[in-house]
Design a protein around this nucleic acid. Sequence first.
DNA 1: TGTACATCAGTGAACGCGCGTTCACTGATGTAC
DNA 2: TGTACATCAGTGAACGCGCGTTCACTGATGTAC
Lengths: 204, 204
Amino acid sequence: VFRTNTEKKGEKERVRAALLRAALRLSALHGFASLGLREVSREAGIAPTSFYRHFADMQELGVTMSSELVGEAIAEVCAAVRAGQGPVASVLWDAMFGASLRDPELIRFFVAERSGASASLRASLQHQLARLASELTAASAAETLPAAAADSAVVLLIDVCARALDETEEQRVALRESCVWAVERLLPAPGERSSTAKSGKVTS
Amino acid sequence: VFRTNTEKKGEKERVRAALLRAALRLSALHGFASLGLREVSREAGIAPTSFYRHFADMQELGVTMSSELVGEAIAEVCAAVRAGQGPVASVLWDAMFGASLRDPELIRFFVAERSGASASLRASLQHQLARLASELTAASAAETLPAAAADSAVVLLIDVCARALDETEEQRVALRESCVWAVERLLPAPGERSSTAKSGKVTS
DNA sequence: TGTACATCAGTGAACGCGCGTTCACTGATGTAC
DNA sequence: TGTACATCAGTGAACGCGCGTTCACTGATGTAC
């Protein structure tokens, strides 16, 4: 009565993962907001009624996609930044774009639903984004940066990564350079001096 | 037979505008992808079947929202940048955030659907964004900028504008400063020197 | 070990509902002469 | 000017469809003793 173990639990876990992957695959096509419980269950190979054994509704499934699937990818990128050698911006791009290549649907989901229709999903994805941003702030010269600089850098990063997936290899190289350049501008490494005054009146 | 004029045309135009505004209002709540033809028609005060007198389907309505509603707002911001006195970044923020305050649902639509589910709508909104980006490139020191710098600046700008709408006045001031700072970093005004090398190896 | 019981993921039938779309029609407005 | 006709935005009834959700049930797995 206390524990139900091994075989039974593992099987449930596999179906749950199938639902998450099915939803990810389908939202790359139509967008998460337009997904139906029956559609996702069909794609996962179970009866519609079985959906409820795993999630209360589509909203709960969406938040789980964020906290588990996106969360794991972000954790990898954070680890790469923490451990990385050389310029932060390059390490950051390579880690994030690498993750995007391994799982293109995941970053598309991330970018699209960060501004999507579901408030709870937006909030959950914003939290994932903030995790990476605070990792970046820690890796930079914190005292000279506006609080939102790292957030801006991450917003740009994921946007460009998602767009780069649709491009040719040549274009990707150009986008990498352009994105690394922008992130370096936004996140000067420790010791680097900013050439731009913090507010207004640069030219005039 | 050749012309059908005055009263009749004006009335049709008014219903058409009501449909566009209804769709904008509703997509601020649920997201455009989840809108139905019946729902929009109801909100606009017409019978569902009358929808077809104006648009072939929801996709066509969405693209029209982009080209007409968003298009007009972007044109205003472009004009402000072209005519503006002082630092480009400040003028840009004030024009864009001013437009956002006047029509909050419009910029939310812009930001959300730029990464949304409909490919044709995405493309149309990307076009609007590019119009503003090229205006900015023209206002800056073109020869020193990566091609995508202005695009990055505009992506950041609209993202922050949309988020600022949900914040207190204090927070908005902070977001303005942070966004202006970021845009200035990405778009140095003519004559300003960049302190960051174009690729890699800043710290090592 | 063997037996009786509890758990619970998965199921198929059924429900009421809102959807997109078609159709033939109305009636006000505009045009021809 | 008056009359007959054309146009066309808006309508209500009707259709078939896929949706989310409920329900009672099955049967394999795990537990108690």
